[in-house]
Amino acid sequence: MSKSKDLIQKLGPLLGLLLIIIIISFMSPSFLTATNIFNVLRQVSISALIAFGMTFVILTGGIDLSVGSTLALTGAISAGLLAGGMNPLLAMLIGLLLGALLGAINGVIIAKGKVAPFIATLATMTIFRGLTLVYTDGKPVSGLGDSQAFQLFGKGYLFGIPVPVVTMIVAFIVLYFILKQTTFGRRVYAIGGNEEASRLSGINVDRITIAVYALTGMLAALSALILTSRLNSAQPTAGQSYELDAIAAVVLGGTSLTGGRGWIFGTLVGALIIGVLNNGLNLIGVSSFFQQVVKGIVILIAVLLDRKKTA
């Protein structure tokens, strides 16, 4: 493939995003205001963090359906610890580590148990959700105290930018670097490109697979903390169907579901497309029922265009 063609393919999603922004801003004058843009970005940060993790998983040729449940469980437990009066930073750290642990469990089932990722994470999706309901007794966890650090995490501003957006950007830069510039990132691509050849090249496929799912779990926990802070409570039903939005964002960004090809910048754009659509359709006054139809159609169009280009 020539360089220029490659670039067009990579920038396709970005052009799509710009097109959607232009259309919506013509239809709704309140769309392109600072308040609304921050609003969109704040919403996107939660789904983007999950989609970043999903990008790693999909690059290895896997899938993770359990991210939404991981978000709910880690959010509920962090909230519970906070409500119990624990040091907020410690409670948040425990939440993140728990997320990594849950993800690692997925990874072990997949790599060592040789269970198909779809099935493994379908099962843990149910298990983690069930554990959340058991822990919360089906009720929201609230009374999280008024710790400054925790409140800032979801609602604060840093240099005038919402903290969740800063978190998302920092995470993006770090993850971009990992994929592009580290041995770990290169091996993630290699496993998705040809798992057997990777194994036969002496790459520790199992360890990398487990690490990828652990990373994804941790990112789900990170977005759980943002969500919990913003709502000032943890909902047992939080994060439902987030896995589908995350997969959609990854696919919109041009990452191949068969693994080995794609990039995280595309995922960021994909998450933005979904976020802008949600927000814009609301502003225009499209009913929430019909919004789903539009979202689905956009995803289909994007994938069909991508197929045409690669054919």
Binding site: R186, Y189, A190, G193, N194, E196, A197, S198, L200, S201, I203, G260, R261
Partner: peptide, 15 residues
């Protein structure tokens, strides 16, 4: 078993 065919020569050698 030998190559990641979508990878460049460089990335294959570096496997």
């Amino acid at each position: 078993e030998g190559l990641v065919v979508d990878f460049s020569i460089k990335d294959n050698v570096l496997l």
